[in-house]
């Protein structure tokens, strides 16, 4: 890694001030799970790293009638173990539980999980000056793309690596972003941006701005997260599906269905959501929902089978909620 200054912030305010002084050349460190890899492989070469892991205001979980609020620096292991999360937001608990390995869940934070950079092997190799790094080519198009996206691609074909993001979007979560200029809140769904608007980033965070907390509104539904990975530990989603459904009796009253590992952002499938409304979740509706979820898929040369796989994963997620 290159030489950089390491500033440990003790409050949100000091963190924001440090970041404001070096807006373009600063990186934020919380759990370090993603950033340290980026530093070691020279994908990130900051002048200053601002550590926010010790800021008390970012390390709490609150739960009341309005919903559940989680500070950005809360470790994944603490998200998994929190009673409100396990009782009310199964999809989030299931998603956080399958992130990386136990070591990663012990160190990694929920904010970091949402803000992490993609795992694309071209992006992660310094030798490829790809679109994401300001270059003019996405090497995956002509190259090796078994892990790349089947939806929402172009001009860059990464998949968003977060497990928690699809779950949180299914749960209709919002995020708070803060900089010295102030604070803004937006639905998590609007936090992520497609490469067609800006291939060099995956979200709307501005230089000097940090994600401070996540809010999940109270709801009466059931939710689930299914992650397909080739290895049962320490592996990324080849395809994933988060679903949150509200029922009247056996009938689905409303649904939010979000795919992971298949698009540059967590991919909400509204066609599936409206299809499920007013239906019972049967083997047949779940199968049909799986087919609808990938209707717009445009696979690359080596990932056509991700389409088949995603169908099966959507079906599994929905049937899990019916069980």
């Amino acid at each position: 890694m290159n030489k950089f200054e390491f500033a440990v912030a003790d409050s949100i305010q000091t963190a924001l001030e440090e970041l404001n002084e070096h807006p373009a050349a600063a990186k934020v460190h919380a759990g370090g799970v993603d950033l340290v890899g980026e530093l070691k492989h020279y994908t990130a070469q900051p002048d200053i790293v601002v550590d926010i892991s010790e800021i008390p205001d970012l390390k709490w979980i609150a739960d009341d009638a309005e919903g559940t609020t989680i500070g950005a620096s809360v470790k994944l292991i603490d998200v998994i173990r929190h009673e409100a999360v396990s009782k009310k937001h199964a999809a989030l608990q299931e998603a956080a539980s399958v992130v990386g390995s136990p070591q990663i869940r012990n160190m990694g934070t929920i904010g970091g999980n949402l803000c992490q950079r993609p795992r694309c092997w071209y992006y992660r190799d310094e030798a490829y000056h790809c679109l994401k790094k300001g270059g003019d080519e996405c090497f995956s198009v002509a190259g090796r793309n078994r892990n790349h996206c089947i939806l929402g691609g172009g001009p860059c074909y990464i998949v968003h690596p977060s497990d928690c993001a699809p779950a949180l979007i299914a749960l209709n979560a919002s995020v708070a972003l803060q900089s010295v200029k102030g604070k803004r809140e937006l639905p998590l769904e609007d936090f992520f941006i497609l490469p067609e608007s800006d291939a060099t980033r995956e979200n709307v965070l501005q230089p000097g701005e940090i994600l401070t907390y996540i809010h999940i509104p109270a709801h009466a539904g059931k939710s689930a997260y299914i992650k397909f990975r080739e290895k049962e530990g320490f592996d990324w989603a080849l395809s994933a599906c988060a679903a949150a459904l509200e029922f009247s009796g056996k009938t689905c009253r409303s649904a939010r269905v979000v795919l992971g590992g298949v698009a540059p952002i967590p991919w909400r499938v509204r066609s599936v959501e409206s299809y499920l409304q007013g239906k019972e979740i049967t083997e047949e509706t779940a199968r049909r929902a799986g087919e609808m979820a990938v209707e717009d898929a445009m696979p690359l040369a080596e990932n056509a089978n991700k389409v088949l796989l995603t169908k099966a994963i959507v079906k599994q997620a929905l049937l899990k909620l019916n069980a």
């Binding site: 795992r119 002509a142 090796r144 080739e230 049962e232």
Partner: peptide, 25 residues
């Protein structure tokens, strides 16, 4: 081992994308 056809480099020279079975498998 996955080789890139564009620049000819190994794309998975780390343990992340070079998959070796773990205890679970």
């Amino acid at each position: 081992r996955i080789m890139d056809s564009v620049l000819g480099r190994q794309l998975n020279p780390q343990m992340e994308h070079y998959k070796i079975l773990n205890a679970m498998e």
